[in-house]
Design a protein around this nucleic acid. Structure first.
Lengths: 339, 339
DNA sequence: CTGTTAGCGCCTTCAC
DNA sequence: GTGAAGGCGCTAACAG
């Protein structure tokens, strides 16, 4: 019997006599035959795998634990769940900068290697120079999560950082009468961090009575939040609200404040951004801005799939809405404690 | 210039004149050439990818959120981090039973397909019939996380459930004088759940003064914990301690108890198992048994790698230690509230 | 040092 | 309906 026939049977094609099909199936079962996917990929020039890459933002110190990945994990879920009906698995690789040496060059190699194993790539965070990305995107379909739109070809899905931050600052000032705000920003390279920073500054500028008490620059990890608080405690003026560019840092900040005997929100409001699962369980529950992380993953994946199906189609950019989530760390009363 | 030369250059082999190498490198750079991994896999008969599969245990109701995956995510981290130095990515697929129809057959197909794309498979949770697993393991290297040792060939890494549960029950009874314990178990199919259940029963039997107030059977999700509490509230006898077979269910139980106006731990102790990150942040912080989830992933991955390197080597079984983590939900005093 | 050759396992067209 | 043949892109062995 020829391999062609077997192939036909395996793929459920019609032009096979039932008896033959039956026989083939039996043998396959008996032998435990499974077609090799590498060979399939090569022959039909499609791998049926999409890749998800991210860099694990880890601050200099021992911030080993659950810091950077909460966001990525949500994105992963989104990606995985939209792929799962197709039966495509997700290829994951997270880069740990401190392990490698020559940053940019290595990072590029790494992306290249990943790109060789997949039909499309979702790039979730902390990617490098845009020139490299552009080259990558020219070669295989790429979707950026929360990336800056300056990369041509790549599809992009991001969130409305501006609206979120604006609502947050407004809430702090108008509802709670906060006047001395401290901003804990994220890394310069992250487009989202940038947007949040400028949105914060611009919104604050709109209010007469309120002003910037100071600001710190963090790396999006809880440890950065702790550091920021130490900085704040050493500062001449104590803020009455600390606005963190993400939840992780807010969590770190709250922990450090608690350690210093400062009450949240009685003495100072603390807010985050992202609406990580954990935030709702904290004491006090974290006031934050919800961003649909999972949906980000889903959309990015869908765009990618579309582009894989139709490589030449014009690039698409989506911006998902954010939503202010008022809990207690801003000073609002809770209903019944953490749910 | 021949493809062989290019191949040599790409793989940094020596027998190439520097000038030639240089020239090749330039062209590669100019063309943005990246070797196709499918072809490489085929030629060198190795894919340099390992797979991680799990089934998402989701209870009948709308338990969509962060329920089942906390464990898997930790395992994933472990796997990913031990692979990362090698530069191997992880191929992930999680199966959602409710989406598919013919369970066992489908599940097997799914495993087969995954197995065709990787050099080895880490199976993390909720796999099916052992016969199928055995066949799979005979074909490619397989490592089971928390699996029962009855599958031949497969390497296995699990934890010491017995010691953990024993320490927990002992603590509840000896330190807190609890006498009416309610057990919220996990799914029958899960080997870990089984071990915890019998360890619980056996330990309890050793104490004269304490007895089983009742028990429920859950699915390891938070919702199961809530259901269990409803059951408890409707029961004739109210327990003074609720021992849950994992943290998720304990969290759900605490939420439901709070909703019913029952204080934890004043009215009833609640304990979990796993030591999920979240547990420490709750109010009250959860007393639980720590299991090294990440390490499980690391060990499973290492065993797999070993076996890939030496397919015929005898199967290995590792059992990692657990550790009682006393926080406040059992009734112990906290130091300074949730950290 | 470099080119040639023979597959790796599968799919696809084309004969039969 | 089924078999034969060529090629997917790369590596490894062998010539030169």
């Amino acid at each position: 019997m020829s391999t062609a026939t077997v192939s036909r049977v395996v793929h459920g094609q019609d032009r096979v006599r039932p008896a033959t099909r039956q026989r083939v199936l039996e043998v396959i079962e008996a032998l435990g035959y499974v077609p090799d996917s590498a060979a399939q990929s090569m022959a039909r020039r499609r791998k049926e795998v999409i890749g998800l890459v991210a860099v694990e933002a880890r601050s200099p110190d021992t911030e080993i634990e659950h810091e950077g990945l909460l966001f990525i994990e949500e994105v992963l879920r989104g990606v995985e769940s939209t792929l799962s009906p197709l039966g495509w698995p997700v290829l994951i690789s997270v880069r740990r900068p401190e392990l490698s040496t020559g940053d940019d060059k290595d990072a590029y190699q790494w992306l290249q290697r990943m790109s060789a194993k997949v039909d499309g790539l979702v790039i979730a965070e902390g990617f490098g120079p845009e020139g490299q990305l552009a080259k990558l995107a020219a070669r295989i379909p790429v979707a950026l999560v929360a990336g800056s739109p300056s990369v041509p070809y790549a599809d992009i899905v991001g969130i409305d950082n501006r609206a979120g931050v604006t609502a947050l600052v407004r809430h702090l000032i108008e509802e709670h009468g906060r006047t001395r705000l401290w901003f804990v920003g994220g890394p310069r390279e992250a487009p989202d961090a940038q947007e949040r920073r400028t949105a914060f500054a611009q919104t604050l500028a709109r209010y007469q009575g309120a002003r910037l008490a100071g600001s710190s620059e963090g790396r999006f990890g809880a440890y950065s939040g702790r550091l920021a608080v130490r900085e704040i405690l050493a500062a001449p003026e104590v803020p009455d609200a600390i606005v963190c560019a993400n939840d992780q840092m807010a969590i770190g900040a709250i922990q450090e404040l608690r350690g210093a005997g400062i009450r949240v929100p009685a003495d100072v409001s603390v807010t985050g951004f992202d609406d990580v699962y954990l935030g709702a369980m904290l004491t006090p529950p974290l006031t934050t801005v919800h961003q649909p992380m999972r949906l980000l993953g889903e959309r990015a994946c869908s765009l990618l799939l579309d582009r894989i199906g139709e490589p030449g189609r014009p690039r698409r950019i989506e911006r998902l809405p954010t939503r202010l989530v008022v809990r207690e760390s801003c000073g609002c009363p809770g209903d019944a404690g953490p749910a």
